[in-house]
Design a protein around this nucleic acid. Structure first.
Lengths: 121, 121
DNA sequence: CTAAAACCTGACGTTGACGTCAGAGGCAAG
DNA sequence: CTTGCCTCTGACGTCAACGTCAGGTTTTAG
């Protein structure tokens, strides 16, 4: 498949795909005229990249960890990095749970004008 | 307290505090010479702001929602915004849980050389 | 064959939450 | 008094993940 189809299927922009390649996260074959060609499995790869971005990892970190994900290849450094990122995500989840609870409390008050805590201050 | 002490106590930079004030998220009294002064409760306010930033809210959104948190004041718009942000955070948590599980699987392979899917060097 | 649509490289623009620097004034200690 | 840290305003710098535009080539539909 070509870049436009991959972009549409994976739900990202064409620009993003070229950026991923520039960062070394995604590879492509080229046709004789220079156009990029991808195998169907590239869709999964792109979605993995998106998932890692969404978790707050940077391009460089993803680049470091992709060999582990791809082939189970690991060095002491990459294992440490994996553990560190896992820990970071865990703390992020914990923080978000707390924030969600806090928002829930605010919503409860906002939706119920008769709520007792409306008389604070 | 002055800005340096607040920054130290709340764990943020002096620059950040001035930025929060610039965005309307934080208020301060001024001494005759123009220096900012904060009440002790400002520490909590700053930490709340940090928590909302960490949850991915923008300054503008936080500005919109602070009246709800502060005084339970709410409009139909702010209630919708609260619900939308809560939903966004919820989806973010869901995504992070999936990512964490995925990382855990990768870590399990990386940490166990005898794992079948592991063909390391 | 031709025109639209998709693709290419290269390069500058965007956004948000600050960092950092410059230049000037304020404040407690010795 | 003056030394040294804190604070002020204003303004430019940063960084990451793209967006967007220019100018040109390639592929596809009719």
């Amino acid at each position: 498949m070509r870049i436009g189809e991959l972009a549409g299927t994976a739900g990202v922009s064409v620009r993003a795909l070229r950026y991923y390649e520039e960062q070394g996260l995604l590879t492509s074959e080229r046709t004789g005229s220079g156009q990029r060609t991808y195998p169907p499995v590239a869709v999964d790869r792109v979605q993995l990249i998106q998932q890692l971005y969404a978790a707050g990892l940077t391009s460089r970190t993803i680049l470091e960890l992709l060999p582990c994900v791809d082939k189970g290849v690991s060095t002491p450094e990459s294992r440490a990095r994996l553990a560190a990122e896992r820990e970071r995500i865990d703390q992020q989840i914990t923080g978000l749970l707390a924030t969600r609870d806090r928002l829930d409390a605010v919503i409860a008050v906002a939706d119920d004008p008769t709520h007792p805590s409306c008389t604070r201050i």
